[in-house]
Design a protein around this nucleic acid. Structure first.
Lengths: 233, 233
DNA sequence: TAGATTGTTAATCGATTAACAATC
DNA sequence: TAGATTGTTAATCGATTAACAATC
């Protein structure tokens, strides 16, 4: 009798639902960069690449690339290297580009508008469904094609529209109370630009805090201590 | 006869010019966060704090805080802890907030405008002197009090006005050629938002590449693999 | 002084790199 | 097949944590 995990159909199903909980954050934070480089290679019409070539392009070691990828499975082929299209697709899948995530932006100040205008979301398979603000003069209008609603309707809207991700560009005083609404409305991830470290009680909700100021300060430090090497690649 | 490095005046002078070239990037990237927390404590009117207390607030170990700070000198006092005002000032100094750095913003699209509107720069002692664009309809105007000039005058302006830092918010196609102008004009640091990894030939010029898309993708990954812990603090 | 907490060394842990057998 | 390059184990390196003597 055949073992159940030898049946290809079942195996595929299993892989589709596989969760990676034990991969180190260092590896995860490198995945988007691999994805970017592979996307560039793909657009350049290249078919395949070895870890050695990619490593030279990216300024890392070939060992690191192979180790990182093998946290998720064997995506390459001995003697050949990696198929660029396949690998790009696989990493995209790992990063959730096929999940069809739906996002809202809260706050329509300069940063909110800038994020409404970018292709940052679409490129990663994330749809911006709506924006929210308290400024009556823009409620009911559209910003770069995204409708703006009053923040009072945020909770109900997120539930109704099964929103996965919220982008917070509100003043830091408002951040916590808005976040509480979002968590109660079942949002799973918060991308926080509110210049404070947001903590939410529900541990299943992921928060990614952005501190551009920290980045600027690091740059200033490097300029002051003028090192001979570039600060970040 | 007294040894030269026992003379306090000389010692101070030396320290003022001290450069830290051997401190690990991991430590450096934590400094702005310490600075933020100490700033909050300072504004809250607190006088002193122990590594243990601060560690609890920040979600790190007390050991790490003491190790990190001791890369730069003994800022605390046994049995007492750290004087918040003094430590905040010292870390600020390390990060270059007293250097009076002067910056320009290149590109006055949504992101450029958002950066023109923030207090991110002033808070860190960086002055925004001018913005540059190619759009004739805004050249000669001011954006949030910052004058806008044509990009053709960028190089000469940076030399004349001794610009230290340039903020790049131009389309990625333009980034490299603008960067070349900046490097030739003696700019020491480039804060790059152009969605590509900028590399400059002059190794003394520091580049800090910002990839917001990478951050969004990391968030999506965490949402997909819904971990029980927050992605970033 | 006694208690507290730093500065610093030593131990542990994790991440990166090197090496090589497996294999395409 | 021979050559190339992966997947993976073992060795190295660096960063974090623990411990404690110094000292305020």
């Amino acid at each position: 009798m055949q073992s159940i995990d030898k049946v290809p159909g079942i195996l595929e199903k299993k892989e589709e639902f596989l969760r990676f909980t034990d991969v180190s954050p260092a590896v995860i934070r490198r995945l988007p960069r691999y994805h970017r480089y592979l996307g560039d290679l793909l657009r350049a019409g290249k078919m395949r690449i070895s870890s050695k070539e990619l490593a030279a392009m990216m300024g890392v070691t070939a060992s690191q690339i192979r180790q990182d990828l093998n946290c998720f499975g064997g995506f390459g082929q001995q003697g050949y290297g990696y198929n660029i299209k396949y690998l790009h697709g696989k990493i995209g899948e790992l990063l959730g580009t096929n999940e069809g995530y739906r996002a809202v932006i809260i706050g329509s100040g300069n940063l909110g508008r800038a994020l409404a205008a970018t292709h940052t979301f679409d490129r990663r398979g994330v749809t911006r469904v709506a924006m929210f603000d308290t400024n009556q003069s823009i409620i009911g209008t559209e910003i770069y094609g995204i409708p703006v609603y009053h923040v009072d309707s945020l909770g109900a809207f997120c539930i109704e529209n099964r929103i996965d991700i919220a982008v917070l560009t509100v003043p830091k005083e408002a951040a916590k109370s808005v976040a509480d609404v979002l968590v109660r409305a079942g949002v799973k991830g918060i991308w926080n630009f509110a210049n404070m470290e947001l903590k939410v009680e529900d541990e299943s909700v992921v928060v990614e805090n952005i501190h551009l100021g920290d980045s600027l300060m690091t740059l200033c430090y490097e300029v002051k201590n003028r090192s001979a090497v570039s600060a970040d690649e």
